[in-house]
Amino acid sequence: MSALHAVWRRNISETLAGALPIVLALGIWYVISAWNFAPASLLPSPVTVFRRFLVLLGDPQFLQNAGATLYRLFVGFGIAVMLGIGIGILAAGNRTVAALMQPVIRVLAPVPKIALYPALVLMFGFDHSSKIALVVADALFPILLATYQGAVAVDPKLVWSARAAGASQTRCLFTIVLTAALPSILTGARIGLIIACIVVFLAEMILSTDGLGQLLVRAARNFQTVDMFVPIIAISMLGLLLNAAFNMLSKRLLVGFPSQN
C-alpha cells in the first residue's frame, strides 16, 4: 500500500514538474504583454490570442481554410500510407525490388522535399493537388522505411510456422509479415502524420490561395499579430490531437504485441 502511495506521489510530482515549464512560459508571456514590456503589435496577450482562437473556431471562413488544410493533409497522408506500406512490404519480400529501391531511397530520403514544391506547383497548379503531392513526398519516406525495416526484422520462424501450416509465400507476406511489422509501421506512420501536418501548413505559407498557412501569411502582411498566432496554435493543436488519436488507434491495433515505449 505504501509502495503504491510512493508511486502515486511520484506521478503527481512528475506531472507537476511537467506542467511547470508550460505554466511558466504562459505566465511570462502574460506578464510581458500585461505589463507592457512589449507592445501588443509585437506580442499580444495570451488571453487575446486564445479568445480570438475561440472566436475564429465559429467563423465559417476560418473553418473553410482549416477544412482545406485538413483535406490536403488526410488525402496526402492516406496516399503516403498506401504507397509506403505497399512498396516497403514488396521490397522486404523481394530482393530485386529491395536492391533497386535501396539506393534510390538513400538518395531521395535526405532531400528536402519542400524544395520540390515550386516544381509541384508548376506541374499541378495552385490548388489541392500540388500540396497533396508534397505531403505524399514528405510523409512517404518515414512510412516506407519503417515498413521495410520492420518487415525485414520479422522473425523468419514466424513465417516458417505459417508456411508449414500451408500458407503461400505471397499470403505470408501480406498477412504474417505485414502484421508482425505493424508496431514499426505504426511508429513510421505517426512520424509521417506529424510531418504531413507540418508540411501542408508550410506549403500553404509558401504558395497558396487558402488554408491555415495562408491565413498566417495574410495576417503577417497586414501586421495583424493576433491573427498570426492563431493559425500556429491551430496547427499545433491539430498535431497534438492527431498524435493522441493515433496513439489510441495504435493501442487498439497492437493488442497482444509486447508493449513498447
Binding site: 511537467g18 506542467a19 515549464p21 508550460i22 508540411v199 503577417a220 498570426m228 496547427i235
Partner: peptide, 22 residues
Amino acid sequence: AAFFNPLFMIIYPVPKAALMPI
C-alpha cells in the same frame, strides 16, 4: 525528463519554419 517532456511534446508538432514571420 518529467520537466521537459510535456513541453517538448507540445513544441513537436509546431512547424518551426512557420514561426519565421513572427
